[in-house]
Amino acid sequence: MTLSFWQRLDKAGRNLTPFAITVMLGLLGMMPLRLPAFAEVAPSLTLMSVYYWSIHRPDLLRPSAVFAIGVLMDLLSGAPLGLHGLILVLVQGTVLSQRRFFLASTFLLMWVGFGMVMFGAAFTEWLVFCALNATLVPFRALFFQALLTLALFPLFAWAFIRIHRAFLQG
């Protein structure tokens, strides 16, 4: 009985990994790095995490959890409330509805899929922001943010795969 309790605890802990990683990356993304002009193009780490875990373990990163993470990021980052909630939920919805495509056999295809999702998300963010402020804001910073996120994706995806294999296999 005791053993099964610990086993259950262990499993619950492991199952929390995708959620915990996404929250941690969100907080890490807010570190003041003191790099010139970095804040405006800071890569969207939560998006990478939501993308990866939605493809590989959607059962462990529920839409409600994704939504909660998005709202938390909005509250902490000073973004309009609901912006990241919407984007992350839309990203997960897109990925899950086309999961067969995104569950690619090669890494390159996963990267290409991420690029499509990333630019879709950036465009959505731009649209929402323009609508909220009733002005046209330049898309430039978002474009470079998307590029930087795309460029850093392999590094983080590699870490996700490692973590996936270490904690969530078998």
Partner: peptide, 15 residues
């Protein structure tokens, strides 16, 4: 002390 400078294209705040 500044403890967070959230990255974002459209909002510039620090905590």
């Amino acid at each position: 002390r500044v403890i967070a400078a959230p990255g974002g294209s459209f909002y510039r705040t620090v905590v």
